[in-house]
Simulated assay, not measured.
Amino acid sequence: MARQSLRETLLDAGFRTIWDAGYSASGVRDIVAAAGAKPGSFTNHFPSKEAFVGEVLDRYFAYVSGLVETALAADGTPPVGRLKRYLDVITSKLEAADWARGCMIGNLSLETVVHSEPLRQQLVSIFERWRQPFANCIREGQASGEIDDRFEADDLADFLLSSWQGAMLRMKVERSPEPLERFKRIIFATTFGKVPS
């Protein structure tokens, strides 16, 4: 069996370390120690902590994109049902972390954008790509009359993601699912509720 490369081992360890401690509290030494690697090994594979975190972020977004693709898949479920399905899938994952972890994209958005222009630009790009499948689903709901079309689908998708990030932030503060459930109750009774006649 092929041995995993040290680069992959470092990325795996860094992913876990950043999840547990955040960007600022995760030093290169912590990542190397978590990987069981030698102290100089990090710079053999990554030019900086910033570049390393950029790769961790790409990995996380690939994982999230898979969840989005599955939840929003056109399988006969109406668009609003698929949006609910996504939020419910994420809620179950947040529950597994005792409402303490949140979303790595949101966490890094709060923590890095003041200090790292490359990471800020990467996050801008991630949010733009993340919005697209939601906008497509919303557009489908608008075309069928299920979702109000007074607002552009892209704007509604942006509103959904931004508001959901805020609900997750409150969830982490309160260590409770109530901010998530409140968000879902309100958004599906208003924005994605019955189209006004």
Rank of each mutant, 00 (worst) to 15 (best):
A2T: 08
F52W: 05
R139Q: 15
R101V: 00
R101Q: 09
S48P: 08
F134S: 03
R131I: 04
F15D: 09
G36V: 00
V124S: 10
A13R: 05
F192Q: 02
I90L: 11
L6K: 04
S92G: 14
E8L: 04
P79G: 05
A34T: 13
D155A: 02
L94I: 05
L110E: 14
E140W: 04
Q142R: 13
H45D: 05
A96Y: 00
I147T: 01
A153T: 07
M104F: 06
L156P: 00
L94P: 05
E152Y: 02
A135D: 03
Q132N: 13
T43H: 13
E69L: 11
T112I: 02
V114M: 11
I186A: 14
P179I: 00
D75M: 08
A189M: 03
R29K: 12
A74K: 04
D30K: 14
Q4S: 14
A34G: 14
F183I: 10
L161K: 00
T43L: 09
S92N: 11
V113F: 05
V89K: 08
A33D: 09
S163M: 10
I138E: 06
E146L: 10
E140M: 08
S92D: 14
F42G: 09
P133A: 07
V56H: 08
R170L: 12
E8Q: 08
R16Y: 12
E174G: 15
K184P: 08
D30C: 13
S116Q: 07
L87Y: 11
F15C: 05
D58F: 00
R3A: 10
V64G: 03
P39S: 12
L160H: 00
F61T: 03
G36L: 04
V64L: 10
E111H: 03
A100I: 09
V124D: 13
E152I: 01
A74H: 01
E95K: 01
E55D: 10
V28M: 09
W164P: 01
F134T: 02
D149M: 03
A37L: 10
G66S: 11
K38R: 14
S109K: 09
R150F: 06
D88V: 11
R175Y: 12
A189Q: 01
G40L: 09
P179K: 03
L72V: 11
S197R: 02
W164S: 04
E174M: 15
T112P: 00
G22W: 06
V113N: 05
T190H: 08
E152D: 13
A25P: 03
H45E: 12
D30V: 11
K93H: 14
F15Q: 04
E50S: 10
T70P: 07
P118C: 06
K194D: 12
A74R: 02
E128L: 04
S176Q: 15
L72T: 05
